[in-house]
Amino acid sequence: MRRIRKFIKYSLIFYAIIALVYWIFIRPVHMSWGATAAEQQMKFPADEFISPDRIVTTRAIAIHSSAEKIWPWIAQTGQNRGGFNSYYWLENLFAASMHNADSIVPQWQNPVPGDTIYYGEGEGYEMISFVKRNEYYALGGWTFYLDSLDTDHTRLIVRYPSMEVKQSVLMRAYYYGLFEPLHFIMESGMMMGIKQRAEAK
């Protein structure tokens, strides 16, 4: 039993160090991963859905492709469409029934405001709030914005309004302990998934 007690003790110390590093060094980086100061200040149409009390993340990634080539992958976002281009195997651990399309599907290329987009099978959903072909796509206040630099370089900027700060202790513990880091993993995975697909020849 002494060995088991020792193992638990070191496991707790290990996770305490992880938590400390995460809060001091990692969280400040992932809240605006890849985004410049100007991109964080940019105004998007769906910002009107974001109340001042919400914790907002703005992340960005450089894609060596035109906005026209990136757009089709964003247009078919959704569990009930072409997936989220993220770590589907991780989503499916939670029985999300996620399948990422590896090709552009014509029938999903015309998203319009009011379309219902599912996050997982039988789970939460969101309506498309704003769409402008080759420029932006928003699910509620969650915006995907394509900033076209030239014909071969585009910045994909993603803004996500998550939780209202004024919440119960339990909700805050859930948000800071699980939702926020997991959302970063999935959202950054999604942005890299879009990059990979758009850059593929």
Binding site: A19, I26, G34, I185
Partner: peptide, 26 residues
């Protein structure tokens, strides 16, 4: 397999620690 080398290390660290932290909390 996706990220070029200058940006790779930052996302590797951020992603790795986020995974470890959320697994730890859970």
């Amino acid at each position: 397999s996706i990220m070029p080398s200058p940006e790779r290390s930052k996302i590797l660290w951020a992603s790795g620690f986020s995974v470890a932290y959320s697994v730890g909390v859970f």
